[in-house]
Design a binder for these strands. Structure first.
Length: 701
DNA sequence: CGAATTGAGTTTTTT
DNA sequence: ACTCAATTCG
């Protein structure tokens, strides 16, 4: 019975992938091929049939959200609480291991996790100290991140030293950065992976404990792993080689942050007896969508090659429009969306608009607002990155780790306490002299004789604030937060919406232990609101990964946008841009609309645009081509052409009607004339109804 | 120390 | 065009 539920609704390849448990396995899972279903079933199968204890399965996902979803889908199959499974992102799994084992590397188990923001401010601080031009910090941060994802320590990097000036500076900054992190008892995201690898490589006994303890390993979104993550899995698999990795080389779109498609392309080299299974049946899209996207991705050199198919039928044609400018593009898009909605085939939340760069959302937003179409922009800024949230979280971090100088610097003067750069400078000097944390230095400075009273007063106030907060043992993070907010008077003079955010944070912290809460704040993001409201989703091609929508629009298919101009001349990056386009197209279930424009305003310059090179790979017969030329025809004819004729009827699209039994509804579509008029009406709570006006006894309101 | 003005840069983003 | 951050002035 359990077996039936586990395997029955899987296709042959999915089943084979679930059943292959005795050696390395690489599953090449095409877009929409039921990958998540297969993985969750495999997890359940290992536990139920292979009798592997749940805490001996080590499973990695790409995001926390994916981990959460997987837990929910596993729950029905296992009679066990899924909360504490070894199932999470690389970062959270590594953090969990390091909390226990990091002592041997000279850190403390109560380390703080630094996010991007903290990383940036620490690097900038270091560049200032080393007299390196501070504006270079972005490059430095990303180079360091790449070094870490390749498991190259500062010492190794300096030793290799080509000695050229920038690399030499970079090396010194990296060395100091690692030193400062340690001094703050903090790890950045890349450290979590790198130090876990280091831990295992330098301590065979510990490795043995974990490699043996985890008797099966599962990795999802394998195409997005970086070298350090791959190395970690190799180490954990060194004992038994029971590892399944699942991914799609065609959907690798994170090279820019260290993901290495090589991991998927070379898996067999490192695991010679690996079994390879391709999942090629697509359950998401129509054949026409698969044809079009397949033609585009087929042109990439570096891929393993898959041929997706579906039994969903041909479906509607893919539409491509070439338009005069981005305003026209957005207008037409808004009209088409309205049309789809009024015809009753799609709700607004069935529809997504995808673009390469966030600023493209602007024109689309304007047009949707104009047409009164509800929409939501899914943007990258997460809740935890907002200033007020980071501030109060920094208080909590400082309280739980007094060595955290980065958090201290962040909050020492917010809310304003009259402690400015010069005061902070003095504290830093003193801390350096003593080889202690800044907080400790502040305390000792209070005892010194030679300092101004006003200076001491300000310092003393801050020190006693923090000390009063450290005295309490907080049961929950919410208690701690409330106390922080109250004693620091953080809410004074704060804008109302920011206060609301903080209240939201407090309520999310109820019944969470402070330590867990801080880890979550660092390792969590908040992009799970897609499809929540009944509105059109606007998002980048990157953030569309893993999602699906009945109708998808991809805008701005032009040279310079997709492929983006910075990637245009680098073949490897052009391949990634092509994959990005592919990911976008394969999000669509039923309808796909592509568009490009002739002229576009980008950073205040008006540019003549060429259609994207990727469009040339779509055979004309696969797709509806609509070109609208503005040059000679003029504006009037353009407005007239695409708007469908409105039947001259009592009932027009958008008006409200009353039906004797279904109540009040909104007319979404209208066809025929006179006595033959038929309308589609959406009655809330009842659904869509197609009615002949003559027979239906309707009343117009 | 804090507010106002001037100036450079401008993808994609999860942890 | 617009944002974010650094510099300058009160």
């Amino acid at each position: 019975m359990a077996k039936d539920a586990l395997l029955d609704d899987l296709n042959a390849q999915q089943r084979e992938a679930v059943l292959h448990c005795d050696g390395p396995l690489l599953v090449l899972a095409g877009a929409g091929s039921g990958k998540t279903r297969m993985i969750t079933r495999k997890y359940a199968y290992l536990a139920k049939k292979k009798k592997i204890p749940l805490n001996s399965i080590f499973a990695v996902t790409f995001t926390n959200k994916a981990a959460q979803e997987m837990k929910e889908r596993i729950a029905p199959f296992v009679d066990h609480d899924t909360k504490n499974l070894w199932l999470g992102t690389f970062h959270s799994q590594c953090a969990r291991i390091l909390r226990r084992e990091i002592g041997i590397l000279g850190y403390k188990g109560d380390f703080t996790v630094y996010d991007d923001d903290d990383q940036n401010s620490l690097i900038r601080h270091i560049l200032r100290e080393l007299n390196i031009y501070e504006a270079l910090y972005k490059g430095v941060v990303s180079r360091i991140s790449i070094l870490k994802s390749h498991i190259i320590s500062p010492e190794e990097f300096l030793a290799k030293g080509d000695g050229f000036s920038f690399d030499e500076k970079l090396g010194r900054a990296y060395l100091k950065y690692q030193h400062e992190l340690k001094r703050c008892n903090a790890l950045d995201f890349d450290d979590l992976i790198m130090l876990a690898v280091k831990l295992f490589e330098e301590n065979p006994k510990i490795l043995k404990k974990y490699a043996h303890g985890f008797s099966y390993l599962l990795v999802d979104e394998f195409q997005d792993t970086n070298r350090a993550q791959y190395r970690l899995m190799q180490l954990l698999a060194s004992d038994h080689h029971c590892i399944s990795v699942v991914g799609d080389d065609d959907q690798s779109i994170y090279y820019f942050r260290g993901a290495d498609v090589g991991n998927i392309l070379n898996f067999e080299r490192d695991f010679p007896k690996a079994k390879i299974i391709k999942l090629e049946q697509n359950y998401r899209s129509t054949q026409k969508i698969l044809d079009v996207s397949g033609c585009v991705i087929a042109r990439n050199e570096n891929r393993r090659g898959k041929k997706l198919w579906t039994d969903r039928g041909r479906g509607d044609a893919v539409t491509y429009s070439h338009l005069p400018n981005e305003e026209e593009e957005a207008k037409q898009l808004a009209r088409t969306i309205k049309d789809l909605y009024l015809k009753g085939r799609f709700e607004y939340n069935d529809i997504a608009v995808l673009y390469r760069i966030n600023l493209q959302a602007r024109a689309v937003e304007d047009a949707l607002r104009e047409e009164r179409i509800p929409y939501q922009v899914i943007s990258g800024i997460s809740f935890y990155q907002r200033r007020e949230i980071k501030d109060v979280v920094s208080y909590m971090r400082l309280i739980s780790n007094l060595e955290d100088n980065v958090s201290l610097r962040r909050i020492i003067n917010s809310p304003p306490r009259g402690i400015g750069a010069s005061t902070i400078g003095k504290i830093e000097q003193e801390a350096k002299k003593q080889g202690a944390s800044m907080f400790r230095a502040m305390k000792s400075m209070l005892k010194a004789q030679n300092l101004a009273a006003s200076f001491k007063e300000k310092i003393s106030e801050f020190v006693s604030l923090i000390e009063s907060l450290t005295r309490t043992q907080y049961k929950t993070a919410a208690d701690m937060l409330k106390d922080v907010v109250e004693k620091s008077e953080y809410l004074n003079d704060l804008e109302e919406d920011r206060i609301q955010n903080i209240l939201e944070l407090v309520s999310s912290a109820e019944s969470v232990q402070p330590r867990d809460f801080l880890d979550r704040a660092a390792l969590a993001s908040a992009s799970d609101s897609v499809n929540a409201a009944k509105s059109v989703s606007l998002l980048t091609l990157h953030s569309a990964k893993g999602l699906e929508f009945p109708a998808v629009f991809i805008v701005g298919l032009e040279e310079g946008i997709l492929p983006y101009f910075k990637a245009m001349d680098v073949p490897r990056e052009v391949e990634e841009e092509r994959r990005l386009f592919y990911v976008g197209m394969t999000r669509a279930k039923d309808q796909l609309f592509l568009s490009s424009v002739r002229r576009r305003r980008l950073y205040s310059k008006i540019q003549e645009q060429e259609p994207s090179r990727f469009l040339k790979d779509i055979p004309r017969e696969h797709c509806n081509w609509i070109e609208r030329n503005i040059e000679r025809t003029g504006a009037a004819s353009i407005a007239a052409k695409p708007v469908p004729m409105q039947p001259k009827s009592l009932y027009i699209v958008g008006c409200r009607v009353k039906h004797p039994s279904w109540g009040i509804g909104v007319v979404r579509d209208c066809s025929g004339e006179g006595d033959d008029t038929k309308i589609t009406v959406n009655f809330p709570g009842v659904g869509l109804k197609r009615l002949a006006v003559k027979l239906a006894n309707l009343e117009r309101i």
